[in-house]
Write a protein that binds this DNA or RNA. Structure first.
Length: 418
DNA sequence: TCTGGGGTCCTAGGACCC
DNA sequence: TCTGGGGTCCTAGGACCC
């Protein structure tokens, strides 16, 4: 039987741990990155804060109520990426088979490394020691025969621990664990399963696949059944190319005026289109999401005759879509709380290809500028920014109201490679 | 006192084609 | 005469992940 050569390495409470590393006064104390006692949202909580029930994604006011001593810090976002990259470099020292799945976690396949570094348990220990000594951060590692098991093992190992699942004892390990630890079972699925008396992975494994599919839907049910039976064929590999690119901004609560919508969508389209152009990509399907008070959101999308990567074109399409969504709402002075733009249906687009056919033939915008002019503007802006930084030049008319937005460094942390 | 930002995948109905 | 079956694309919504 194959050994436990798949490792899942996961930095503990990454953002909060970095803050504690950079400011010794925060060590040993409950820390929340982002948010405040008055509002906003907690992006990450230190283990001292988690002990009080504070967690990422929680509104700040609630976190403060759970843990009155909670120390809110704004987050030094620019520091996070380089530190995480150093950790990934250490992982890469034991095997080239590293699959990074977010800023702070990765799978490794160490099957080919045991002759150099010893068994998986020894490799896990080595990695944890090096990350602690050379970067100063705690990291947990799970080792098992499959990705799914390794990922669950690292969750069980947290904080700052290691768990190796012996291939002979996988059922013993898995059966008593809650179904919510499975990758793909969130609050809704967990609740649906609980209604049928299924709360552990063992109980899920003993439920016929057909019954699970009726509860969770065909695809999810079949996948969760397979995982509960330890059938996980996924290999460690490089990440595939992104299938969509997007950007969003929460707005508080504001009346959807022409100026506000145009201002925000310009900024979002600028980010999205700029990322596309930087990677010589473009996409045909544009989707806009508008969120209204009460967290209710509506999406409108359209598929264009050809791919777009021009900032101004994307802005205009996004604006049309946003107003379709807003105008469908009853009443006047509709309030909105978030706008999002994303582009999918991505294709390679050499930087020399113009968007002329799309723009000049598009009957919906008879007066639109020729694509060549837009392409030239985008390329100029890209070039100036490459030399002088993002703030050097932009598309926004200076008369427009500024909308408060999160730092670019924070957005970039969550970006996937295109 | 009311929730960030960037992603993936699935479902379901309708249009359209052969 | 008003009817089969399969496939693909598009749109809207939703669950889930980090």
């Amino acid at each position: 039987m194959a050994g436990p050569t798949i490792l899942h390495a996961d930095l503990d409470a990454f953002y909060a741990s970095v803050e504690q590393l950079l400011d010794p006064r925060l060590r040993g104390r409950p820390v929340a990155v982002g948010g405040s006692a008055r509002g906003g949202v907690v992006l990450a909580a230190s283990y001292e804060a988690k002990a009080y029930g504070v967690s990422g994604g929680m509104p700040g006011w609630r976190a403060a109520r759970l843990c009155p001593a909670l120390q809110f810090v704004p987050g030094r976002f620019a520091e996070y990426q380089p530190l995480a990259d150093r950790v990934m470099d250490i992982l890469g020292d034991v095997t080239p088979a590293v699959e990074r799945i977010s800023i702070d976690e990765a799978f490794l396949d160490v099957a080919g490394s045991t002759h150099l570094f010893g068994p998986p348990a020894a490799i896990a220990a080595l990695l944890r020691r090096r990350v602690r000594e050379e970067v100063g951060l705690p990291i947990s590692v799970g080792a098992a025969r499959t990705k799914h098991l390794a990922k669950i093992a690292s969750q069980v190992a947290k904080p700052d621990g290691v768990v190796v699942v012996d291939p002979e004892r996988e059922r013993e390990f898995l059966d008593p664990l809650p179904v919510g630890l499975m990758w793909g079972v969130g609050p809704v699925a967990r609740e649906r399963l609980a209604e049928r008396g299924i709360t552990t992975i063992g109980e899920l494994a003993r439920t016929p696949s057909g019954a699970v599919e009726r509860v969770l839907g065909h695809a999810v049910g079949a996948r969760m059944s397979a995982l509960a039976h330890n059938e996980d064929p996924r290999r460690v590999s490089g990440a595939g190319r992104a299938r969509s690119v997007g950007a969003q901004s929460a707005l508080g609560r504001q009346v959807a005026s022409r100026e506000l919508v145009r201002e925000v969508l310009s900024q979002l389209a600028d980010r999205v289109a700029g990322r596309l152009r930087a990677k010589d990509r473009a996409g045909r399907t544009v989707t806009v999401r508008v969120r209204f008070p009460g967290m209710r959101s509506v999406t409108r999308s359209t598929t264009l005759p050809g791919p777009v990567a021009a900032t101004l074109t994307l802005t205009e399409v996004a604006e049309q879509l946003a107003w379709q969504a807003i105008d469908d709402q009853p009443g006047s002075d509709v309030e909105i709380t978030l706008l999002a733009v994303s582009v999918s249906g991505l294709t390679a687009q050499s930087s020399l290809q113009l968007e002329l056919p799309l723009l000049t033939d598009d009957p919906r915008r008879p007066g639109s500028e020729p694509g060549a002019a837009r392409w030239a503007v985008d390329r100029s802006v890209d070039a100036v920014r490459a030399r002088f930084g993002r703030g050097a030049v932009g598309y926004l008319p200076s008369a427009m109201p500024r909308v408060r937005t999160v730092p670019d460094e924070f957005r970039e942390l969550a970006e996937h490679d295109l």
